[in-house]
Nucleic acid binder design. Structure first.
Length: 464
RNA sequence: GGUGGGUUGGCGGAGAGGUUACGCACCGGAUUGCAAAUCCGUGAAGACCGGUUCGAUUCCGGUACCCACCUCCA
């Protein structure tokens, strides 16, 4: 059996992966808060876990993996958007506006991640569907002396959990020293965090032993992972920015509520995304969503390829140059594999992926297969990484009408060449090239052409 | 201030204490009416300063610079 190695944030080491139950490998990925379109950075953990799940299914079997990714649909940003619509004159009640917002955002998210070739998880729980489990867990924490109610809130008592801070390598005292923490007067310790908070009448709320209120951010993941994967499961992940406080708090809640269990054995964290060397932020004007890229005509498969070029534990830079390189490589590989049947994935590829998801190394294995013209294995291996799938291939097949136009122009050029009129032949070639079509003369006299990055259908039509 | 990570050839980007990463670009050759594509081939690296070692880009320490987190954030 393939030995999978993963870098575990909890131990800060690359370790052999040993599932709790090889017939049911269980993973949890922190999913989006559904208040707006997914930005490009949101795609990174999704793609990391997508490759991981494909690898685990390959090694342990298609039915031996359970993948959970949540939707956070209780959040003040969602409430704010609903409030905005209400104030803009919507006749719907606030609860309906909130539901409307989360529903449309989830549909966008699905569409955008589908476009990147990411497999849907086995379960996509929503926080609002697990409120009773959260309340039960909070009651357990209070009973165990790890949480306390104060002024309609329930807070987790970080001093009650000696390992608090272990995941992120901080001590409670260090954090207090330098942090700008909001210190509510009813907190026993400034680092105590909210498990439950009261809701005013204009906010969504649920009845609880502490009055009408809503859960804090972190408790949902603890409750939902326990419900769907058990108190102990294999892998938990997300962006490195979630390491603290979100994952630290999840560990505190889950381990105190289930002291006999291990919670997540392996913690995987991906590094952040940059754009042209800078942090993606609204103020720098380089903030964009997955949908923005798709709408600009960047195929989802190209976006996926660019992400896979960089190891998940390193900062990844989205650049125009990479986009072009990815597109050119994919076109070449799609040409090589056109009409081929998928064979067996190469062992070099599996080994690269099994070595802490070394997707860059795996792409090198694909380059090797392409170079040797091994179309069957290239196809199977690329598909292991979610590339060269039928689902993602539409962008690389050309419009028939346009193809016919190009063919007619190319035939005219061929006639000119045959007649020895190289001046005319070269002119036609230059015109096509300016419109993004590269012509290639072949020995067999067939017409062959490729698009380049400046491909422009209107310009091509204008030539004829 | 605290914590964590990074610095590899023109660019992107991996692994490994000693043997070619790989891709793109470049250069040389084959091929071509000329190109393109393709094939063959040559170059080119590991921030800086020390240490360990027969040998370090790879391990350890220090310095510089960069980034992230500590506040909603994947």
């Amino acid at each position: 059996m393939t030995r999978i190695r993963l870098t575990n944030t909890r131990t800060r080491r690359k370790e052999d992966f040993t599932p709790i139950d090889p017939t049911d490998v269980r993973l949890y990925l922190c999913g989006p808060t559904v208040y707006d379109r997914a930005h490009l950075g949101n795609a990174r953990p999704v793609l990391v876990f997508d490759v991981l799940v494909r690898l685990l299914r390959h090694v342990y079997g298609d039915d031996a993996v359970t993948y959970v990714r949540n939707f956070t649909d209780v959040d003040d940003k969602i409430n704010a958007e609903a409030q905005r619509r209400k104030e803009a004159g919507s006749p719907l009640p606030l609860e309906a506006l909130i539901a409307e917002r989360t529903e449309e955002t989830i549909a966008w998210y699905h569409a955008d991640m589908d476009a990147l070739g990411a497999l849907r998880p086995d379960h996509e729980p929503r926080a609002t569907g697990y409120i009773p489990q959260m309340i039960a867990m909070i009651e357990t924490l209070i009973a165990g002396g790890h949480a306390y109610a104060a002024k309609g809130h329930v807070l987790f008592d970080v001093r009650s959990y000696p390992d608090y801070g272990k995941l992120s390598g901080r001590s409670v005292d260090d954090m207090i020293a330098g942090a700008r923490v909001e210190v509510a007067p009813f907190k026993r310790d400034p680092m105590d965090f909210v498990l439950w908070k009261p809701s005013s009448d204009d906010l969504p709320g649920w009845d609880s032993p502490w009055g009408r209120g809503r859960p804090g951010w972190h408790i949902e993941c603890s409750a939902m992972s326990a419900e769907l994967l058990g108190d102990s499961f294999d892998i938990h992940g997300g962006g490195i920015d979630l390491q603290f406080p979100h994952h630290e708090n999840e560990i505190a809640q889950s381990c105190c509520a289930h002291p006999q269990a291990s919670f997540a054995n392996v913690w995987l964290h991906n590094e952040m995304l940059q754009v042209e060397g800078k942090k993606m932020s609204k103020s720098l004007g380089n903030f964009f969503t997955v949908r923005n890229l798709l709408d600009q005509g960047v195929p989802g498969e190209v976006i996926r390829f660019v992400f896979l070029m960089t190891h998940y534990r390193k900062p990844m830079d989205w650049t125009e140059a990479k986009r072009q390189e990815a597109e050119a490589t994919l076109r070449k590989w799609r040409d090589v594999t056109r009409g081929a049947e998928a064979g067996q994935p190469s062992s070099a590829l599996i080994e690269a992926l099994a070595d802490d998801l070394n997707t860059a190394g795996a792409l090198a294995a694909l380059h090797d297969l392409a170079g040797r013209g091994d179309a069957e294995r290239l196809l199977a291996s690329a598909q292991m990484m979610g590339l060269l799938t039928d689902q993602l291939g539409a962008w690389s097949t050309d419009d028939e009408e346009l193809g016919a136009i190009i063919m007619r122009i190319a035939l005219e050029r061929r006639a000119a060449r045959k007649a020895g009129d190289y001046k005319k032949a070269d002119e036609i070639r230059a015109l096509l090239e300016a419109a993004g079509v590269k012509l290639m003369d072949t020995a067999s006299d067939n017409i062959a052409w490729q698009r380049s990055s400046n491909f422009d259908p209107e310009a091509i039509k204008a030539i004829e």
